[in-house]
Amino acid sequence: MRGKGWWLVAFAVLGVLLALLGLASGTVNVPLPQVWGALFHADGGAHAVIVRQVRLPEILTAAAAGSGLAAAGLLMQTIFHNPLAGPGVLGMTGGAALGVALVMLAQPIWTMMPVPDDLLITGAALIGAIAVLLLITAADRRVGGGVTLLILGLMVGYLCTALVSVLQATSEARALKGFVLWGMGSFAGMELARLPWIMVPVSIGLLFALTMVKPLNAMLIGDDHARSMGVDVVQVRRRAIWITGLLAGTVTAFCGPIAFLGLAVPHVARAFLRSADHRLLMPGTILLGAALALGCDLIVRAAWTGAALPLNAVTSLLGVPVVLWVLLSGRRWAGR
């Protein structure tokens, strides 16, 4: 542990710097002193609206989404002893996508409900994720966890994808484009007033994830060894699944299905910290997840592209090399 704690400080500093950059840059570049004024002074100056109403919600959403997905990814990787697990491995993001597809593509009575469109989409995603979560926890009680549960989650994910594609094939072009855009993921468009809706559940999930570092460490040497050291493996797994559902479900509901961040960040954190000790790795993963999501958000909004890039293209372009690196240097990072 000694000395490695400085990495956590470095990750936090990186996150703060990227957040400041995110507040300052975009289609209109705001000098940093004015960013400060816009945030903390009542009159705020010329760019107060952009900084406070548009960019502040976006970077806070990015930080919450990045840290939440990364923590969920680490939980799944440890619980299932699988370096390639991520927050979506139990099918909960698939369930969220199915919920959104039902609202956006099937359009039976939904459109007549007195709810704003974006809230309807968020609600549908949450309901979809919760439905899969309940299915998985019910199955966990029967199959007794492990690889069987992992395969079940993958199957549910495939099933959701299949149903979504059926809905896509039968939907009209305008609705289809809307769904495809949702599927690209985005940190933008969050209203300042609604920020607590993502910040509060994600914060709760992160706090619970941090309380699990001790049993997660025991599970590094296998479920049976963990049990012999007094860990209630069944309860730990169930708790991890619920936290992952809370984190991944919330993030997907507000930002869409975001690829790779949750899978890749724990590996990057391990590579820097050179330790699988969750007392370091969990806070490190959370901080680095926030920082890397802020970095992705910067690239998405980079002025030189003209139009905004799809978020999932950016996370995948950054994430794929990381996953390949993990696979190719598997002996070092993935165990053994």
Binding site: V213, K214, R270, R274, G335
Partner: peptide, 24 residues
Amino acid sequence: PPTGILDVETLVGLGRQPWTDRWG
């Protein structure tokens, strides 16, 4: 066991889990 990246001292320290506080 598939320990991942863990040094020997940390692995042996896991044995103290039944005796340490909730944060290990």
